[in-house]
Design a protein around this nucleic acid. Structure first.
Lengths: 343, 343
DNA sequence: GTGAAAGCGCTAACAC
DNA sequence: GTGTTAGCGCTTTCAC
């Protein structure tokens, strides 16, 4: 029964006003006490805190948010492109999301997650921002929405995007230098002896396009034939079949594959084996991301590492700075080649 | 400039009152029109809708939520046990989360994600519920918080939990029949020829404990020696080392391993290979979950499948029913044995 | 069918 | 230091 001097046993205390009545003070004082504001008598504060604890009272965040015009919530939105189904459970995004949750929590923010399909809801970004529920937004992946994001960025500061950096863009982005990563992968494949390279994955999304471009840079510089693009979807089921098809068609004419992601690379490894192509002897293979799976394939995957945790930290850090009114530059993370046994 | 009959070009319209002024009606009418309420003149409604579209107006959800005492947001909380780090990026939880996001979106709810560390914040569940920000909560994983969840369940209906079902429990739970799954795994290992079984993973969490218990049921029934528990953490880095250690110690004395999750099974496969133990010839191996990785290991993993998508649907369905005031039973999903090549 | 008015629960001036 | 007051932006009686 703590140190409350009233017989306050079974009163329901839902609002700050209830609590004020119990403590014999005004709602304003309770508000100040609970918010840890300076000018409150220590005794009063302690009494209020005790009462609050005793009754399990917590201030309504909706009301507080409405009044203060800030919610303590950061929106995280994942725009899904055409390849709707699997993207959200894609390991990479999910890992990033986990780290974002960590990082935002650390800074006292909650995370509101929203998946959107821009194709069927062109207004996705404004709707989220305009909902009044969030103080800022982190967009995970530009998908095919680069222009829309650019448009919004002009009128809304509290946004940071995970994705690819393009010269002169207006939205603040955090992401790996995909082009450089693509170069690293291609260089490694070539160093391992490959000459006729293929790129496995959809070159539509900007990140992937940049990876492909980086690899092409190297092929061109080295005087090798153009890199063969082998398009796939991202969902494992469809991708497997597509990869099998590609390999049946081109498998004997290539000796190096740069997969857009580790997930695709792992799938590809399985299909290569199924078709009797030895890795790395017949075909060298490199992935991208360095997800946990990269270590566990047989043989373990040579890949280009993205530092996901650093990415999450960067996103949150930049967003909080922008909320505080600072101007911020985009933040490009360096990729890192991880040589294992496939190339 | 659409069909607004005013020169409403550059007015900022942030509130329903702004819009009302523009439309020449009262705020109440705008509210009714935008909410699709019945009694509004069609002409008035159209005018208001046009204006709203033209100015990109969206009602503030905080205010609406405060007034209506509902937010349109469902909280999803992941309690992290001792093994803090990796759990959130654990594939299983993340996949479930993805499906939950899908399912909630479909039903018009937003998702507020919160990670909590019960050990340092014993009040985690009440805090989330009491925040006023959410209409209901989905708890992902009971971790070691079974009692706390039970306590809360007595006074709060709008909660559904992913986890293990125990006879007579008071909170509404959705989850796979882990004990049955454990039996299936053990039976398969034994059918494949194993006699001296081990269980790989922490038996602390209820789900894992039930899987272990199921396997023990079978061993006892068949008159086999007790199953050897080999405890590990969940994070890949630590787990790998621990598995290596366990195998060095006991590897030659066991011929069947039931891993608590596919992630652990995949790691185990790598370590078995490293120690020169052939799968399935020397050691049979079974996992749990049937994550995508189960198909891609070499050899592909025999495992017990949990239907994650069905689980997510069940969670959302039950929660919405409870929000609507219905009484609901817990929902136990049947596991399914998937025989591949490790056992 | 629409307007006026009273709050939802909280916070921030402004008094004293 | 604390009370009083006036809203934050929206919804919903209750009139008319």
């Amino acid at each position: 029964m703590a140190d409350s001097d009233e017989s306050s046993a079974r009163v329901t205390v839902r609002t700050i006003t209830d609590l004020a009545r119990l403590a014999g003070v005004s709602p304003g004082t309770v508000s100040r006490a609970l918010a840890g504001k300076s000018l409150v008598n220590t005794r009063t504060r302690e009494k209020i805190e005790a009462l609050a604890r005793e009754h399990g009272f917590r201030p309504n965040q909706m009301a507080s948010g409405l009044r203060r015009q800030k919610t303590g919530v950061i929106g995280v939105v994942i725009p899904l492109g055409h390849d709707i189904r699997q993207q959200i459970s894609d390991s990479f995004f999910m890992t990033l999301l986990g780290h974002l949750a960590d990082e935002l929590t650390t800074h006292g923010y909650d995370l509101m997650l929203r998946r959107v399909v821009p194709e069927s809801d062109p207004d996705w970004l404004d709707r989220f921002i305009g909902s009044g529920m969030i103080d800022g937004v982190i967009v995970i992946g530009q998908s095919d929405q680069f222009e829309r994001i650019e448009d919004v960025a002009d009128g809304y500061r509290s946004m940071v995007v995970w994705g690819n950096h393009t010269e002169g863009q207006r939205h603040c982005v955090v992401g790996t230098d995909n082009r450089l990563g693509g170069r690293m992968a291609a260089e490694r494949l070539i160093a391992a002896g490959a000459r006729r390279l293929a790129f496995l994955g959809d070159t539509g999304p900007m990140e992937f396009a940049a990876r492909f471009a980086g690899a092409q840079d190297v092929a061109a510089r080295m005087g090798l034939p153009a890199i063969l693009p082998l398009s796939t979807h991202l969902s494992p089921d469809r991708a497997s079949a597509e990869i099998a098809q590609h390999l049946a068609e081109h498998g004997r004419n290539i000796d190096g594959i740069f997969a857009a992601t580790d997930t695709l690379a792992a799938l590809c490894l399985t299909e290569l084996r199924a078709q009797g192509l030895a890795v790395p002897d017949d075909v060298k293979l490199a992935g991208f991301d360095d997800l946990p799976i990269a270590r566990q394939t047989v043989p373990p995957l040579t890949t280009v590492r993205q530092d996901i945790a650093a990415g999450a930290r960067g996103l949150v850090d930049l967003l909080l700075r922008r909320l505080a009114g600072e101007a911020t530059e985009s933040f490009v993370l360096p990729p890192e080649l991880v040589v294992r046994e496939t190339a």
